[in-house]
Design a protein around this nucleic acid. Structure first.
Length: 625
DNA sequence: AATAGGGGCGCC
DNA sequence: AAAGGGCGCCCCTATT
């Protein structure tokens, strides 16, 4: 990874507008009778010292820029580049876009400086915008964006905006170069792989995902009926919905008026009214069960039925457009924003797709566009495998080999029976066998990161609805410690190492600064947990970006669209006629990702993916190739 | 009226 | 003393 070469970089930036000011950030409005447009495009060849582009840029002007970059083997450099790429895509330049190379200065800045949030300022999330960059690096230039009207058609303002646009590109190039210099070779590798995914993320944000609004309406009605049913049971007690929606009022009702026993407290020492509390209370009082049902139904309706419908209504294109951000977590995972603007000005472009409940009932809300199959590639046992690699635990590593079933193994150890015997029972769908495997799965998934027996017990009871005593939880906890002996050793060693180094790295070289106050009683546990967790979770993120990068060309050649990232699951839309050929090919690419070449590290166990195909998110079937 | 923060909860 | 981590969104409440 060499030093920054100005000769092969082309800085660029758009200014945009729309029939409403907020449409300036919604390129998908272009397809709706051109309610979105670019007001200005600047691209700069720093080496040759010229500025190209112009105000009211045409599709031809944009194509010219892309063709120039391709012909001269130059890389386009932007700031928060997915947005600007989605502008180009909205103008119909898909093929050229996918053939170009892209970078993002914001991405470098993030890689260079990211630190866990609690390590710096708990309340203020750092922003990595261009204006913030200028304020930090060139404070005398700060405020250059003042008085810019992005929507005005006044000739003076157009001229002013053009000069502002030029400044943006200059700062973009300077900022990208500045932060590139900060990066270690490993960080540069990761950032470049991530940058390969920029146009795919731009495409997903632009296209959004079709919502089955009829289905979503039915779901809303059903959840509404569930809530009404629960409310009906509570009516004789004079309970009002508003009370159930308010933690303070609910607390008064449960513990003062009804005199039910307290289960646990919140961080601020109030009596908790959460799901676990209601779950435990439901064993002694049916009213608690009805309250739990009511709260879950109401919450799920708002989040997963009403919100998708609202976004489709707002977007006017039958689609929901949660906006993916590559940069938003320190671990490297993408997150999705459902809204643009804040508070009263909120624009509901999407919904909380990342939190979508598991299960057909909810996930059927999202469907493939006509002519496409929805395809999911899921990284098999991703966190279990990376923990096996990180800890070097021989038992874990052997369970990552083909034909093994880690959950059956753990279940067998917990039950004190033979592993292969249990595997046979599970294969025959024996009820007791399946239950023992489920227990093993719970242990494997819950105890990887220093969870206590107490918490394990709660997860089992509340989330899995499994009866479990604290004694049984203790047994599972102890079994985990004895089964994967190197995992607790990894925890200890990792804490010492990260404390000493002042940073923590993934297997790929992604890095987070960890120079916080390890002696602070309130911070220590969090810092330690990040030290343990980051190599696992962050490597998963690196793996996802590598996967996307390696699939990009194939997707372009076969009109396959990247749709959604769910951390260890990647979703694509594949033209139906292509699916039969594409799925096995893409699976092969994913099963043989070039880790050694990309990261300089070859995982000692096979990293495989499973494919699922179907017409909607709720109706995906395992691909039997 | 608008905003910030807490409680709670969904996913990985 | 006890403590998995990472997020974003919904709702309510207190504050200004």
């Amino acid at each position: 990874m060499t030093s920054w070469n100005r000769a092969n970089k082309l800085g660029f930036d758009f200014e945009t507008s729309g029939t409403l000011p907020e449409y300036a950030l919604q390129p998908w409005r272009r397809a709706q009778g051109e309610k979105f447009w670019a007001t200005s495009l600047v691209y700069i060849n720093q080496q040759l010292g010229w500025v190209h582009g112009g105000v009211n840029p045409t599709r031809e002007m944009m194509a010219e820029m892309l063709q120039y970059a391709i012909d001269n083997n130059m890389t386009l450099v932007g700031w928060n580049t997915p947005f600007d790429i989605s502008v180009l895509l909205a103008y119909g330049l898909h093929d050229l876009v996918m053939r170009c190379k892209w970078l993002d200065g914001m991405l470098f800045w993030k890689h260079a400086t990211v630190t866990p949030e609690y390590d710096t300022n708990r309340s203020k999330k750092k922003h990595y915008g261009l204006k913030g960059l200028v304020a930090e690096l060139w404070p005398d230039q700060a405020g250059y964006e003042d008085d810019i009207d992005f929507n005005s058609t006044n000739p003076e303002m157009i001229e002013k905006r053009w000069r502002y646009n030029i400044k943006d590109v200059i700062f973009t190039l300077r900022g990208a170069e500045y932060w590139w210099d900060w990066l270690t070779p490993g960080q540069r590798r990761c950032a470049l792989i991530e940058a390969r995914c920029l146009p795919m993320v731009a495409e997903a944000n632009l296209n959004g995902m079709p919502v089955d609004t009829l289905y979503a309406n039915d779901l809303a009605l059903k959840l509404n009926a569930d809530a009404a049913g629960a409310m009906g049971k509570l009516a004789q007690w004079g309970v009002k919905p508003a009370v159930l929606r308010s933690p303070t009022q609910l607390s008064r009702l449960l513990f003062t008026e009804w005199g039910l026993p307290a289960i646990k407290k919140t961080e601020t020492r109030a009596l908790s009214t959460d799901k676990e509390t209601l779950h435990e209370l439901s064993f002694i009082d049916d009213r608690a069960k009805a309250i739990k049902t009511y709260r879950e139904s109401v919450g799920n309706q708002a989040k997963f039925a009403d919100a998708p419908i609202k976004s489709v209504t707002y977007n006017e294109d039958g689609c929901t457009h949660p906006q993916a951000f590559i940069y938003s977590t320190y671990s490297g995972r993408m997150t999705y924003a459902s809204k643009q603007g804040r508070n009263k000005d909120e624009r509901p472009v999407g919904f909380a797709v990342h939190q979508e409940k598991r299960g057909k009932e909810f996930r059927s809300v999202l469907i493939a566009p006509s002519g496409y199959d929805m395809v999911e590639f899921d990284a098999d046992g991703q966190e279990f495998k990376w923990m096996a690699v990180a800890s070097g635990d021989p038992t874990m590593l052997s369970l990552c080999l083909p034909g093994q079933d880690p959950h059956s193994y753990m279940g067998a150890v917990i039950a004190g029976r033979d592993y292969f015997e249990l595997m046979i029972l599970v294969a025959g769908e024996d009820e007791k066998g399946l239950l023992q495997r489920k227990m093993g799965k719970l242990g494997n998934l819950s105890l990887q990161y220093r969870t206590s027996a107490k918490r394990l017990c709660s997860v089992a009871r509340v989330d899995y609805n499994m009866p479990m005593s604290l004694n049984e939880a203790d047994h599972i906890w102890n079994t985990y410690q004895h089964t994967y002996v190197m995992v607790p050793v990894y925890w200890d060693n990792q804490i010492i190492k990260v404390k000493r180094d002042g940073y923590v790295e993934t297997f790929a070289g992604r890095r987070v600064q960890m120079t916080g106050d390890w002696n602070n009683r309130d911070l220590r546990w969090s810092l330690e947990s990040t030290a343990i967790n980051f190599p696992i979770q962050g490597t998963g993120a690196d793996q996802k970006y590598l996967a996307l990068a390696c699939l990009r060309d194939y997707c372009r050649e076969h009109y396959i669209r990247f749709m959604l990232d769910m951390h260890d699951g990647l979703y694509f839309l594949i033209p139906k006629a292509t699916t039969a050929e594409a799925v096995p090919y893409m699976k092969h690419v994913l099963d043989t990702l070039p880790y050694k070449k990309a990261w300089g590290f070859e995982p000692p166990v096979p990293m495989t993916f499973s494919a699922k195909v179907g017409p909607s998110w709720g109706d995906l079937k395992k691909w039997e190739g």
